[in-house]
């Protein structure tokens, strides 16, 4: 289905920057990665095109992609002493982090779906603005607020962008991978791993936990 949708977008909106993200797992849940600047046009097209009619955004969620190092093996051919040899080289590459928002779209009219739509921010620091798709699908309103609250993605064009779960004075975004929760619990009866380390550290400095 997704290839037809992509072809339809490319013929209906030439110039829109949409690419297919393949999912190699057996479930094969491929998705469309949309450039944020074209997102509103693509979303409107998906909703209104008579061949597509994705009239319902059922789910909006966030994903945090922290920066990571990827190891790649490169095979190159070299001629050493007249004989051709294959030399394998491992190269480490930095992949910058980003925040992602994922929309699951259904067409109630055509009984199709889900179509997975993704958008990515430029980085995880200050460029975390994405266009809001609430003007296209009203059901995205609260869920975009939740993504804003927990991941810190700013949705531009959202009618009422406030925190929805945490209080207004709260400064953190707890679903980000680098979130550190306040250290305020007396420990479970059988601590292990990271918690055990904290128990030991706390036992070394008595009088602080009461």
């Amino acid at each position: 289905m997704i290839n037809e949708v992509l072809a339809r977008i490319q013929s209906g909106l030439p110039g829109a920057c949409v690419e297919l993200v393949n999912n190699p797992s057996p479930s094969g849940q491929h998705s469309l990665l949309v450039n944020p600047k074209d997102a509103l046009a693509v979303a409107g097209f998906l909703r209104d095109d008579p061949e597509l009619l994705f009239d319902f955004a059922s789910n909006v969620s966030g994903v945090d992609w922290p920066p990571k190092k990827v190891k790649e093996t490169i095979v190159r051919k070299e001629t050493v002493d007249g004989a051709e040899k294959e030399i394998k080289e491992t190269v480490e590459r930095d992949v910058p982090g980003c925040l992602e928002v994922v929309y699951h779209l259904y067409s109630v009219a055509r009984k199709t779906g889900p179509l997975t739509l993704r958008m990515r921010t430029a980085d995880r620091g200050s460029n975390v603005a994405l266009p809001s798709l609430t003007p296209v699908w009203k059901s995205a309103d609260f869920q975009e607020r939740e993504v804003y609250d927990l991941f810190g993605i700013r949705f531009e064009g959202h009618p009422d962008l406030r925190r929805i779960l945490m209080w207004d004075e709260y400064a953190d975004h707890p679903m980000r991978k680098d979130y550190v929760a306040p250290d305020d619990f007396e420990y479970e009866p059988t601590p292990h791993d990271e918690i055990l380390e904290r128990v030991k550290a706390r036992a070394a400095t008595p009088g602080e936990d009461a």
């Binding site: 209080w167 207004d168 004075e169 709260y170 400064a171 953190d172 306040p182 305020d184």
Partner: peptide, 11 residues
């Protein structure tokens, strides 16, 4: 009170 990271005071 609602603080920036937790309730203030936490207990």
């Amino acid at each position: 009170a609602y603080g920036a990271h937790d309730l203030e005071p936490p207990m």
